[in-house]
Simulated scan of single mutants.
Amino acid sequence: MGSVFCEGLTHAAMYARFRPQVPASLVNYILSFLQEKCKGPMNNAIDVGCGSGQSTRVLSSHFKNVVGFDISEAQVAEANKLEKLANVSYKVNRAEKLPCETQSVQLVNAGQACHWFDLSKFFIEADRVLVPGGVIALYGYQFPMPIWENKTEKLTKLFTDLYLDSLHGYIKKESLDVYYSNYRNLRFRIPFEDYVQIRNETLYAEHQATVADFVGYISSWSSFQNFQTQHGQEAAYDILNTFETKFMNELGVNTSSADTELTLRTNYFLQLGRKPTTTTKRGNSPVEKQTNLTH
């Protein structure tokens, strides 16, 4: 059962092991948009809310220097432990006060993270650190869809029921905001002057995983972690066991969960905004003006 491989893993380690990897198609789409106006060398990118680094290291081949920031010391420690690339580093830092020089960064990236930010303050900071023509990229993903012959719909319902029923009281508002809106809410609008809404919801990634891996992914949900904190590990693992049993029964196979592979498809939603190529005097920034309207 999944609890066997979860034992001894911290939340940060679960996050690193089971969260989906960012597809190259999404990174290439961001880079293409950035390079339309930002023609110089790609020196600096930052990844805000980097977690254990999945959304950070994929930028390494495109920029001279990449830094991931996260408020969680455990996540940053896990990212540093895993990192082998010389041009990628990680620091504990909040999204609302970035330790970067003014107009020093070409890309401010946030993958499956910005719903946790104070966005009005984050947008002002992103505006400050970005070079003219630099880009903010906000993206997230829906739950991975388990693809298995003609049972995809039933399997998907099993884990959405787990999320919305068994764990509903343990889901924070910010997570539900992602689940229901895919960053379409007005608060996610990137408030650059003459802003044009750039969205892409066509990007996805597929990978092979075992059922045990899929259960491990569920154990990395913040709602599951909240349940475990309140009710203990045994009660939490009972939920995983029950889910895994239902899932395996639906598949109708004789193999173990660790030996049963299926395809997981993860659909992404991406929102991009470009800083104007003409600079504005600090204090009169259109970003500051628009974000101040929200208070």
Rank of each mutant, 00 (worst) to 15 (best):
G2D: 00
S3M: 07
C6Y: 05
E7G: 09
E7Y: 14
L9V: 05
H11E: 10
A12C: 03
M14D: 02
R17S: 04
R19V: 07
L26Y: 04
I30N: 08
S32K: 13
S32G: 13
F33W: 06
F33G: 04
K39H: 14
K39Q: 14
A45D: 10
D47E: 08
G51C: 05
L59T: 08
F63K: 06
N65M: 12
V67W: 06
I71L: 15
S72W: 05
Q75W: 02
Q75Y: 10
E78W: 10
N80W: 04
K81V: 06
L85V: 13
V88W: 03
K91C: 06
V92I: 14
N93I: 05
T102R: 15
Q103E: 15
S104C: 11
V105F: 07
Q106K: 13
L107T: 10
L107K: 12
L107M: 08
H115L: 05
H115N: 12
W116A: 13
L119M: 08
I124Q: 12
A126D: 09
A126P: 09
D127Q: 03
D127E: 12
L130H: 05
G133A: 08
A137T: 03
L138V: 14
Y139W: 14
Y139K: 06
Y141A: 04
F143C: 01
I147V: 15
N150H: 12
D165C: 13
S166W: 00
S166M: 07
L167S: 09
L167C: 09
H168I: 03
S175K: 01
Y180W: 02
L186E: 11
F188Y: 14
F188V: 04
I190C: 02
I190P: 02
P191L: 11
F192R: 11
Q197P: 00
R199T: 05
E201D: 15
E201G: 12
H207A: 03
A209G: 10
A212N: 15
D213W: 13
V215A: 13
V215Q: 06
G216T: 11
I218N: 04
I218C: 10
S222I: 08
T229Y: 12
G232A: 07
E234T: 15
I239E: 09
I239V: 15
L240N: 11
F247W: 04
L251S: 02
G252E: 00
S256A: 14
A258W: 01
T260M: 00
N267P: 03
Y268E: 03
Q271S: 01
L272N: 02
N284M: 12
E288H: 14
T291F: 03
